[in-house]
C-alpha cells in the first residue's frame, strides 16, 4: 500500500532533523547513497545502462536512427533525450504521456550533455545536408527513491559513452542501418553529470532521499564537467535560494561531480 499519508508526518521529522543539520538516514550533507551501474544490459539497444542510486533505479538506452538534419544545421547530427516516469516507479505516477516532471527531467539531462559539447555533432553527419545520425537516449524510471535527476544523468551519459554507431549500407543513395552491426564507438569527450541538492530550512543536502525531496523547500541540479565548468543549472520547487547559497552549491556541485565521475569512469 502506498504510504502517501505518512509523508506529511515524515516531512516534519525531516525538517526537525535538518534544523540541526542532520539527515534521517545519518548521511553527511555531502554524502551520496550507494551507487551501482550496469552497462550493455539490453541486446537491442545500441548502448545501455541501468543505474541504482540508493534504491532509485533508472534504465537508459541509446538508439541510432538516420534522419534529415535540422535546416539550420545541415552538417550536424542530433542527440534527443526522452524520459518516462513509469507508473511502477511511484504510486503517485499516473500512466499517460510525459507530464511536466518527466519533460523537465529529460530536458535538463539533455542540456547538461548538449552544452558540454561532449559529443561532436559534426561527426554524426553521414551525408552532410542529407543524412545524419539522430541519437535517441530514452530514460525509463523504474523505481523512485528520490533524486531522479542524478540517476538519470549518470544513466544517460554512461549509455552514450558505451554506445556504438551502427554500420550503414548504401543502396544507391539510400542508406539502411544494419541492426546489430557496429562500425565504431561513439566518441564522448566529456562526462557531464548532474548533482542535485535540496534546501530544507537552512540546510543544504546533496542526493536527496525520497522523504527529503518531499520535505524540501527548493531543489537545484547542477551539471558539471571535469575542468570544473558548469554546463546546466535547474532550480526546482517553490522556495528560494540566496546568492550565497547558490555560490556554495556551485562549489559543492563541482566537487560532488568529480566524485560521481570517478564512479562512472570505472564502468565506461
Amino acid at each position: 500500500m502506498s504510504n502517501e499519508f505518512i509523508w506529511e508526518f515524515d516531512k516534519d521529522r525531516v525538517r526537525r532533523f535538518a534544523l540541526r543539520g542532520l539527515r534521517l538516514d545519518r548521511r553527511g550533507p555531502l554524502d551520496y547513497r550507494p551507487i551501482s551501474i550496469a552497462t550493455d544490459v539490453f541486446a537491442n539497444a545500441d548502448g545501455s545502462a541501468v543505474v541504482d542510486l540508493g534504491g532509485t533505479k533508472v534504465a537508459a538506452g541509446v538508439k541510432y536512427e538516420l534522419g534529415s538534419p535540422f535546416p539550420d544545421t545541415p552538417n550536424k547530427g542530433a542527440v534527443m533525450v526522452d524520459a518516462e516516469l513509469l507508473p511502477m516507479a511511484n504510486p503517485t505516477f499516473e500512466p499517460g504521456p510525459p507530464d511536466e516532471n518527466a519533460i523537465e527531467l529529460a530536458r535538463v539531462v539533455d542540456r547538461g550533455i548538449r552544452e558540454s559539447n561532449a559529443i561532436d555533432l559534426e561527426k554524426l553527419a553521414v551525408e552532410p545536408g542529407k543524412w545524419v545520425w539522430l541519437v535517441f537516449v530514452d530514460l525509463r524510471v523504474l523505481d523512485d527513491n528520490g533524486n531522479l535527476f542524478d540517476a538519470a544523468s549518470m544513466a544517460a551519459i554512461t549509455a552514450l559513452a558505451t554506445s556504438k554507431i551502427p554500420v550503414v549500407e548504401w543502396d544507391g543513395d539510400t542508406p539502411t542501418i544494419v541492426r546489430g552491426d557496429y562500425d565504431r564507438p561513439l566518441e564522448v569527450s566529456e562526462i557531464p553529470l548532474l548533482t542535485t541538492f535540496v534546501k530544507i530550512g537552512n540546510a543544504i543536502f546533496v542526493d536527496p532521499s525520497a522523504d527529503e525531496m518531499r520535505a524540501a523547500d527548493a531543489r537545484i541540479s547542477v551539471a558539471t564537467v571535469d575542468d570544473g565548468s558548469v554546463t546546466a543549472i535547474q532550480k526546482g520547487g517553490e522556495g528560494a535560494f540566496t546568492k550565497e547559497e547558490l555560490s556554495l552549491v556551485f562549489d559543492r556541485a563541482i566537487d560532488r561531480g568529480k566524485y560521481l565521475r570517478e564512479i562512472v569512469k570505472k564502468v565506461i
Partner: peptide, 14 residues
C-alpha cells in the same frame, strides 16, 4: 509498455 530501445528499430514511447 515497451522501452523504445527494446527493439532493433527505435519504437516511439507511447
Amino acid at each position: 509498455t515497451m522501452a523504445p530501445f527494446s527493439v532493433p528499430e527505435r519504437k516511439r514511447p507511447a
